[in-house]
Amino acid sequence: MTGPREPREPLFTRSFVLLSASDLAYFLGAGVLVFATPLFVTGPLGAGPAQVGLAMGAFSLTTLVLRPWLGRWTDRHGRRVLLVGGAAGFAVVVLGHLVVDSLAGLVVVRLALGAAEACYFVAGFAALADLAPPARAGEALSLNSLALYAGIALGPVAGQGLVELGGYPAAWVGAACSVAVAAMLVALVPETQGQVEPAAEPPPLLHPAVRGPGAALGLGLLAMSAFMPFSVLLAREAGVALVSVGLLVFGATVVTCRLVFATLPDRVPAAPLATTALVASGLGMLLLGTWPTSAGLVAGALVCGLGSAFLTPAVFALVFRSVPPAERGAAAGGLSMFVDLGLTGGPLVLGSLAAATGLAPAFALTAALPLAGAWVLRPRTARPRVRPAG
């Protein structure tokens, strides 16, 4: 007979709930901007699609540059300053849209938004790792990430309603108010970082524990971020009546798996789970590229969703189980840099391939990216060889 199970450390603490609620309010506001900004560029500013790309890309430029530095900073000075300051700064900068009357002005605002985003996201990632019990790290990210998905899904809907109700000023004010609520919520979270010795040597700018898993995560996210905008075009090209079916299946799969199987990344070895998720993402993209029909679109989106559902929680658990508490900020900064590269680079890669080969072949070729990520994780998933006795 086995003894009674030891009770698991609590995950749903007051701080965890407040951080997740703050994330929901923050990404709801960010989702409003995702909807309103491209229309603002092509409408009142009178610019074209290329200028939309410039404005949207300016945001990612500052996030990408600042994330690793901010990660090391938050290890030395704590998470709370960047969490509250990043959210409050984002809310204030959003209001700067009210005086923007040129593309150059919008680019400046977007650069500043990227800096605020980097502060909030890196510190939030590190705080989540601090709050998660070691045996529940994957579950913590699975459940917390639902706030991000819900915010990004509902934000554009809210943005459309605000623009229709009061024009772009209503959208900017609404987004700022939502992020201000995020700042107020996260201000109630006490400092999560433990004591750090002043003389402690800071880790390298790109933490060694992040390099392999982060590269694999970035390659997987390249496929996911390519799938999201181009699945609609693939459905239209294939003559599918409901062109959003791929996104619906993908989103429903990710949310369902992260709810139902939230504890899986903590119950199985993280590296093999991440590898399996990457292979699933590759197979999903291959299905989409070689079977461009209604059935193929649903099947490919489902398999891609399975891969995306487990990839980030598995990598999160893999990295933060191997990093000491005093270096979680540096790890969060490096890991989020790979997230940024993956989310911004996917549409560029698939779009370039589609211009050269056509849309369906581009999906099939993009399948190589997550499969390459699985190859990067291969040393971590291989079992150690047992030396024969004698």
Rank of each mutant, 00 (worst) to 15 (best):
A25D: 03
F27W: 07
L66H: 03
G345K: 08
L205H: 07
L302M: 08
W69V: 10
L371D: 12
T13P: 01
L318W: 14
P190T: 08
A372M: 14
A360T: 07
G358L: 10
L222F: 02
S22R: 00
G43T: 07
F35H: 05
F121W: 13
M285A: 15
A372Y: 09
A175Y: 10
L287A: 14
P134C: 07
F230N: 04
Q193M: 09
P44Y: 04
G31C: 05
G334Q: 10
W291Y: 03
A55M: 06
V279N: 02
V65F: 03
A170G: 01
L206P: 00
S231T: 13
A183G: 12
V279F: 01
L206K: 01
V189W: 10
V255P: 05
A127N: 06
L219K: 11
A158F: 13
F35A: 10
S22M: 06
L353P: 09
A171Y: 12
V279G: 06
V339N: 15
V386Y: 04
G167I: 10
S294F: 15
G166K: 00
A126V: 10
E117T: 09
E139Y: 01
L141R: 06
S231K: 07
L335R: 07
V210P: 04
V303H: 00
P272L: 09
P133T: 08
L128N: 01
L162R: 14
V52F: 07
G346V: 05
A209C: 07
W291C: 04
E164H: 14
C177Q: 11
S102V: 04
R72C: 02
A21S: 12
E9S: 13
E6P: 07
A118Q: 05
A317G: 03
D75G: 08
A209T: 08
Q51R: 01
E237C: 09
A153I: 14
A88C: 01
R72H: 14
P68G: 00
L143K: 11
R5E: 15
V255K: 01
S15F: 02
Y26P: 01
V84C: 11
I152Q: 11
F12M: 13
V339L: 14
R76A: 15
L288Y: 06
P265M: 05
D101L: 01
P203R: 13
L377M: 12
R80C: 13
V260A: 14
A332S: 14
S20Q: 05
V108P: 03
R380S: 11
A116I: 10
T2L: 13
L45N: 09
V245S: 03
P265G: 06
P213H: 13
P272K: 12
F12E: 02
L242M: 13
H97V: 02
A182K: 13
V94L: 10
V232Q: 11
L217S: 01
S225M: 02
V100Y: 08
E191A: 14
L24P: 04
S60N: 11
S102L: 08
R385F: 10
V249D: 14
R14Y: 08
G390C: 05
G246W: 13
L365D: 03
A116H: 03
A158R: 03
A367W: 00
L131E: 06
L242E: 15
P198C: 08
A238G: 00
L11C: 06
L306T: 00
V157W: 12
L128E: 05
R383E: 15
Q193C: 04
V122Q: 03
P388L: 09
G342N: 01
L219D: 12
V52Q: 00
F363I: 01
F121C: 04
W73G: 06
L148T: 15
P203S: 15
P10Q: 02
